[in-house]
Design a protein around this nucleic acid. Structure first.
Lengths: 125, 125
DNA sequence: AAACTACATTCCGATTCAGGAATACAGCAC
DNA sequence: GTGCTGTATTCCTGAATCGGAATGTAGTTT
């Protein structure tokens, strides 16, 4: 992946907010949507954009789709550097912090379930 | 300047190459153009793009226009972080390295002259 | 089976952007 | 002044977004 393609993924506010949340770990679309307080189609399209370009992965978990950044060992040096940079910068800006705060208030069942490869009713019940 | 605006400036290959060169110091358009081997209008328009968004400054020096990044003390934390990140990443990619190599082969009269606030016939003579 | 949930895709309009050709402009040389 | 050099701007076209409304789809529940 070329450097400029990374920046193209980062040059939209919604995508920045999504990636900032995904830096915390895998998340299903409904949580991303709830944390960002944006319409479903908007979230879905930007996730699609990121996915085509390889910045995120997704897998189905029952009714839910879990999105995640690629595993660390598969991240190029440039990607690692830029994700770290983004995380640092976002950590100091209110908008991004608010997203994280909202995320933490949600019932985060889906993330642990996803991590455990689990069963359960999962996610948003 | 918002974080996303920084990324918008970085999401074009030509602009990345320009910024990578400007990280070395102030440069006149003709040197940028020569180092990148791109048409004048292309260089000029991308410099204009960066300038309107505050990522570069310009000042006239006789016949030449010298572009430079804003002085360090005026760079926001996010800008510093991202410029550093860019420089690191670019330092390892052939395309960017080749630009720098071409730049160093040029007669760099204009940069010292600019730094000295100088007279002289300057730049590309 | 039908109904529901979570998400994706298609279709649309509006905007932005990239690149090139031609032209304009500002300052220097004469 | 004229002409030249270095750079910017205007005009155009094609392509790439972005966003929303409506619709489609996969999997679950009953």
């Amino acid at each position: 992946m070329k450097l400029v393609q990374i920046y193209q993924c980062l040059c939209d506010e919604t995508r920045l907010r999504l990636l900032n949340l995904l830096l915390e770990g895998p998340l299903c679309v409904c949580h991303l949507q709830a944390a960002l307080v944006e319409p479903q189609v908007k979230i879905s399209k930007h996730l699609g954009y990121l996915k085509t370009r390889g910045l995120v992965r997704s897998r189905r978990q029952g009714n839910w789709i879990i999105y995640a950044l690629p595993p660390e060992r598969e991240r190029s040096a440039e990607l690692k550097a830029n994700l770290a940079c983004l995380q640092d910068c976002a950590a100091e800006q209110t908008g991004f912090k608010r997203d994280l705060a909202r995320l933490r208030k949600l019932d985060l069942a889906c993330a642990p379930v996803a991590a455990a490869g689990g069963k359960g009713k999962a996610c948003c019940d």
